[in-house]
């Protein structure tokens, strides 16, 4: 199992992982605690203000290195991602288990009192956009494989727009529900509703971020098939999960 790297005589290093971790650390645990636990605006601004640029710099550096350096064994990322997705499936299962437990223990009394009529048209439209974006991403991937950079960028942008609309609809729906006073703390249904749809939406956000990480180098004419394929697998997964979210939360 020899590669060029095998017999090199220097130690490999990269500051990208460290930056991503420290950025994330400032942004999420410290940012969350400053805002929700200590309700301190100055601290929140400090942590998020420091964390965001560090995180972005780390990601940019990491993507750059990923596109310019040879891995020890090429193509393994496309195998690793499905393994990671096993983990993701179980986290969704954990959340759904909570939802099923709460729901089934309530007997016929579901949704509990105080739950407004949900507009079922919204999830239908959202499904439409998300499935569409999976298809357009697939087209983009084919363009990438064929070496058609312009086509790759075009379809990538279309995918990005479709995904953004999906997320926009979530925001729209949340705003409406919050406006009529149906927040996360309203009742058992709102608890599950916001947690599960919100968790899915966070995956959409990560997906959109990874589209950007593919798109920005693509403008410089650079792409990496393994990276493109991995982002695709992740996005299709996010798409498939949505069917469960929609069927369990909206239509059951």
């Amino acid at each position: 199992m020899s590669t060029a790297a095998g017999h090199e005589h220097h130690w490999e290093w990269s500051w990208a992982p460290t930056a991503v971790v420290i950025g994330t650390f400032l942004l999420v645990p410290l940012g969350f605690s400053a805002y929700f636990v200590y309700e301190d605006t100055m601290l929140t601004i400090l942590f998020t203000g420091l964390g965001t640029p560090i995180l972005l710099a780390g990601i940019a550096r990491w993507v750059h290195e990923g596109l310019t350096q040879k891995p020890l064994v090429a193509g393994l990322a496309a195998t690793a991602l499905p393994i990671f997705i096993v983990s993701e499936i179980f986290i969704f299962l954990g959340l759904f288990t909570a939802y099923w437990t709460m729901r089934l223990s309530q007997g016929g009394n579901w949704p509990p009192e105080g739950t407004p009529e949900l507009n079922l048209l919204i999830p239908v439209i959202m499904t439409f956009f998300l499935v569409g974006s999976s298809i357009t991403y697939h087209v983009a991937e084919m363009k990438d494989e064929a070496g058609d950079m312009a086509g790759f960028r075009k379809w990538l942008i279309i995918t990005l727009i479709l995904g953004t609309i999906f997320l926009g609809l979530t925001v729209y729906e949340y705003q409406h529900l919050l406006h009529i006073g149906f927040g996360p703390s309203a009742n058992a249904f709102s608890t599950a509703f916001y947690t599960i749809t919100g968790f899915h939406a966070s995956h959409v956000l990560v997906g959109l971020g990874s589209f950007l990480a593919v798109l920005i180098p693509a403008f410089k004419g650079r792409s990496n098939h393994t990276l493109t394929a991995s982002v695709g697998v992740y996005w299709h997964f996010v798409d498939v999960v949505w069917f469960f979210v929609a069927s369990q939360i909206y239509f059951w």
């Binding site: 969350f32 929700f36 636990v37 983990s87 993701e88 499936i89 179980f90 986290i91 299962l93 954990g94 959340l95 909570a98 709460m102 223990s105 309530q106 509990p112 927040g183 996360p184 703390s185 009742n187 058992a188 709102s190 608890t191 916001y194 947690t195």
Partner: peptide
């Protein structure tokens, strides 16, 4: 991941007011 889901619910129950573990509200 299942542990991660569990502690996340804990976080939400405590700081966002959700009711996963609150029997009085159907948890």
């Amino acid at each position: 991941p299942v542990l991660a889901a569990a502690v996340t619910m804990l976080l939400f129950d405590k700081y966002l007011g959700t009711h996963f573990f609150d029997p009085a509200a159907g948890g």
